[in-house]
Design a protein around this nucleic acid. Structure first.
Lengths: 245, 245
DNA sequence: CGGCCTGGATTCGGATCCAAAATCTGCTAC
DNA sequence: GTAGCAGATTTTGGATCCGAATCCAGGCCG
């Protein structure tokens, strides 16, 4: 585990930080719905602390863009319009491109082996997600799939060794859609999942071939393609991205 | 003035937000030295409020990366190593490249006229900065020059109309070095200032010519060149970027 | 003489308290 | 029946208070 603090410098030690992490987790996992109001009193009860650290945690999440804030009205889980969502992916596409190209220059054999492992995990999760056994928990499967997906890119981040940019990329990644989404799946979506996996393999190959420009292009296209996947799922699940806000 | 809130959504209304802005201003203008500890009690006295909104403000700045934080030890104005500083500029280079290329596709005649105005202001300030009249306040001159510099890019941001990415770019820009730096100047630095101005004009021309790829390249190179300028000034002023942290 | 311990002064993190803003509810007037 | 208003209730923002961690200075021991 990356253990170390979350953004740079900050971290554990104070309740405010632990709670920020906990709330973030709740948002990302979809436990807290986008748009829902975050009552300080209620959170304070949930986490058994006073409102003071709660508010500090919310301030932090607000600065990171995960929650929105209106004076005297409160915080709510942020919702993104299609345009904003697209921007978040465009941003990530640029950053992933940069990071991946730098990683291609630096990767050692060990790094490549680690990437291989991450890719295998991701591949396994993708198969599990496509299998759709009756009675499996698609929600947690999706969360696991996303984690494996992130895990793959995290290896690349580590190799590139650009902590500040990595932080920004991760933030854009969190902001992506807020909650995890999942769909029963159909042929279109299946194809997109498979394409996603193929792209990972291609990126992996570009790193192995020490091709910075190739890696950049592939990573860039990969992220934009993920936007496509997400949008398709959201439509299929009857929750299309709002055109305006 | 841009009036509207700072990041997205947040803004005026609460003291915590006003104070965050005030402290940020103090950091960016160099009033608060990098590395200096921010005592809550003292800030509370300075702004005539209790420590509660002060702490919320600091939390926010911490999430934005302007101040660093250690549990039970306090907040301090963040210092960046050379590597981190370089990363901040690399990040900005990518984002400016993206934003400028999008702006090149969208710019209207009015936009180009506005850009022309911003360029003129910047050009004027550059001349003033190079003039070095005896008795002029180089500190505030530099702050003004930076503002004009930012103003030029702000026009482009507005034209590109990518608020989320704009926000990220502005954040990277704030984080750049913390405080403004200024030097009496010599031939090398003069030449760099002039190069900077030439680059602005080139970017302007690329926008006028509706050349997205050209604009991207120029903007990218421009930001990296700014890093060079900054580093040169810092060395000249006897405060070179720390190699490690 | 120098490193280490101890007790007091600071400073921080969090809980509690209070005033102001917003929201809700039920009544009134049209 | 509905628009609008007044008071009650909820919820937020900020101030104050208290326990705990850190820092600092002086003394002790090797």
């Amino acid at each position: 585990m990356s253990s170390a603090a979350h953004p740079l410098g900050e971290g554990i030690g104070t309740k405010a930080d632990e709670i920020a992490l906990a709330i973030e987790e709740a948002i990302v996992s979809g436990e807290l719905e986008p748009g829902s109001v975050l009552r300080q009193e209620q959170l304070s009860a949930t986490y058994s602390v006073s409102r003071t650290p709660i508010r500090e945690a919310l301030r932090r999440l607000s600065a990171l863009g995960l929650v929105s804030f209106e004076a005297n009205r409160g915080f709510r889980v942020r919702t993104l319009s299609r345009q904003e969502m697209y921007e978040a992916f465009l941003l990530r596409a640029e950053l992933e491109g940069l990071i991946t190209s730098v990683a291609a220059e630096k990767a050692t054999q060990d790094d490549l082996a680690e990437l291989e492992q991450a890719e295998k995990r991701f591949s396994r999760l993708t198969r599990a997600l496509r299998a759709r056994e009756p009675g499996d928990d698609r929600r947690s499967l999706t969360v696991d799939w996303m984690r494996a997906n992130h895990g793959f890119h995290d290896v690349i981040y580590r190799v590139a060794n650009l902590p500040l940019i990595e932080q920004t990329a991760k933030n854009a990644r969190r902001t992506f859609s807020g909650p995890a989404v999942w769909a029963p799946g159909d042929e279109t979506i299946d194809e997109l999942y498979l394409a996603n996996e193929r792209q990972h393999r291609a990126i992996q190959a570009a790193l192995a071939a020490r091709s910075p420009e190739g890696a950049r292009e592939l990573a860039h296209a990969h992220v934009l393609s993920s936007f496509n996947l997400l949008e398709t799922i959201l439509e299929q699940v009857g929750r299309p991205l709002p055109r305006s806000r």
